[in-house]
Write a protein that binds this DNA or RNA. Structure first.
Lengths: 346, 346
DNA sequence: ATGAAAGCGCTAACAC
DNA sequence: GTGTTAGCGCTTTCAT
């Protein structure tokens, strides 16, 4: 239509240069006239490249939460396979309690020179050098779970933890007497390292301050294996007028049964749809769970990288997931929903 | 590899017959050995058909709820366009309060002979003949919103309304005194026609019965334009020990401000993220909304039909959406999330 | 019953 | 700078 060849049109479309301005202008005009939309499907056919994505995540065997992330990655992987797109996911695991383990794994990932990286950088400062290297090597990466301000990731996929804390406070305080007091419990976490949990706590406290002036106490409990764990918990329960406990991680199941046993009126809010928590939800020992949806987060990470590598499709730098509230009455609807999301076009 | 031509392999793959059993066997064996997976992307390239999908929905101009459905359909449509797949969506609207309007529109849809139909069959019995016709004409259809047992749809996309009622009851009763009583309010609906709302009410009552023996009163309020609307509402508020009101539709905003004004302690649970409800959520006159997510439901309907027509991909006959709980603290996270879901591969 | 060949929309390699 | 061409994986048509 513009009196030029396919090749020239292609060069205009992709700005590959080597086109005279006159020709380019005419092509662009025709493109505009016919409202040309590229067929992205056909695009992938020709270029038969095998992209390699490195996934750097906490060991799925050490924590059911990370197991769900792993499953999300696998789900993304098989979706791509189904579409006939060749992607290889190279998994690397680290121990979520050991900074060195992360650094070591990160180094290996870097040396393997993947086309892109999906990573949960639990160790804020320790991870920064890794991202600097990736940036210099122009390897795009996506962050899940932990947002690192200092680096320029393709995207961060996670939740607004401050709002998450506020939401927990809303759920835990609704309808409670005005003289109530509440406890925030962090289990088996190194608080100094965890920007994460501090954000949630900050949100929780802010909501309470603005809305009701309740008294809030926070506790850091050690590992549940320790012999003093039970004593520490008892101390929490001694809080006067205790009406609710907010467990900042997915470990609420470790304390919920004991707490309700001692004091059934205490409301408990925790995180995530892992098996043990689901049981507590059903038997009434946990009242609310906030779903962080690690599975869908991870899957979206893979999809976003695929969109970027394949189609150069850009993505918002921040993709914050909704804060899903789960109770005994809607939990089943969440569990069955996931399984159904498996079309070609989704 | 099997010593036959492409054409023969294709015939085996699609069971188009005209293949000798010996050849077929060898082909199947090779297919199995190399673990052949068809490239579904390439498949769509050759067949350049333009499919027509009819969307038969309540008029989007009459109700913000249906406006969201409409937007979901549009989102599905543009996703398909982006993929370079040719689908035409033919919209038909009807008045959600007039059975005849539905029947008339349905007839027109049928005569237009679309390749598939997406429909919200609000009028249970009146819709059945339409579906019989579609079935006989072998036109696949998907139901959203209202499940019709008697017909064999490709899929139903919606929510479990019984569980929805139970959830509402859980949210409304949590932490309330044991002598509390609750009201169920249906606004501007013909209850006799509405299997829908009865299901929600049944769930609500069941939860209360099992868990707390509270007293439940239901009310059917007429159209909000009527002069007696306010009086009817006052009657609701006279219920002794009233601690919560469950509005069974997306119209909670019509009563929430008045109710909270008269009695701030009454907890209110309603449905859907429409603008007016959002305002009530923010100013505290509505406590919880359950999101039916008409937008995502409709989009999934289009996607499912595309998967079916294009890839013959089957789908579970029931796709129940999660019952999303929305409060003042997590509502913003739901609103921003939607906009972000716009990749090529999603 | 089987094979050969064209073509879907696009990219990349090469020749001019 | 520009045009030509092969080919991505698959479907479809036509000839045999």
């Amino acid at each position: 239509m513009a009196g030029v060849s396919e090749g020239t049109v292609d060069r205009v479309l992709h700005k590959r240069g080597k086109v005279s301005e006159t020709a380019a202008k005419r092509v662009r005009q025709v493109l505009d006239e016919i409202n040309y939309k590229p067929n992205l499907i056909a695009r992938t056919l020709g270029t038969n490249r095998n992209y390699r994505i490195a996934a750097l995540m906490p060991d799925q065997k050490l924590d059911p939460y990370w197991k769900q992330s792993f499953e999300g990655i696998s789900a993304g992987e098989s979706q791509l396979a189904q579409l006939g797109i060749h992607f290889t996911i190279e998994h690397s695991f680290f121990d979520p309690h050991k900074k060195e383990s992360f650094q070591e794994a990160a180094l290996k990932v870097f040396h393997s020179r993947p086309d892109a990286v999906l990573v949960a950088p639990l160790f804020y400062y320790a991870s920064i050098p890794f991202f600097k290297e990736l940036s210099e090597a122009r390897i795009p990466f996506i962050l899940v779970n932990t947002y690192i301000q200092e680096v320029k990731a393709l995207s961060f996929i996670g939740q607004d933890l401050f709002k998450s804390g506020r939401l927990a406070a809303e759920l835990i305080t609704k309808g409670q007497p005005s003289n109530a007091s509440y406890a925030i419990v962090h289990i088996d976490e190194d608080l100094t390292n965890s920007v994460h949990l501090k954000e949630k706590e900050r949100g929780f406290r802010e909501f309470c301050q603005i809305n009701l002036n309740a008294s809030i106490h926070s506790f850091v409990l050690g590992t549940p294996q320790s012999s003093t764990f039970r004593d520490q918990l008892t101390k929490v329960l001694k809080t006067p007028e205790l009406s609710g406990i907010f467990v900042s991680t997915s470990k609420a199941y470790l304390v919920a049964p004991t707490i309700k046993h001692e004091n059934a009126a205490v409301r408990i809010v925790g995180y995530d749809l892992i098996k043990q928590n689901l049981e507590c939800l059903q038997n009434g020992t946990i009242d609310f769970l906030i779903n962080q949806n690690p599975m869908r987060q991870a899957k979206l990470g893979i999809q976003t990288l695929a969109n970027y590598l394949l189609f150069k499709k850009n993505t918002p730098p921040l993709h914050l997931f909704p804060l899903e509230i789960i109770t005994s009455q809607n939990v089943s609807t969440y569990l069955s929903h996931e399984g159904n999301l498996s079309g070609i076009i989704v």
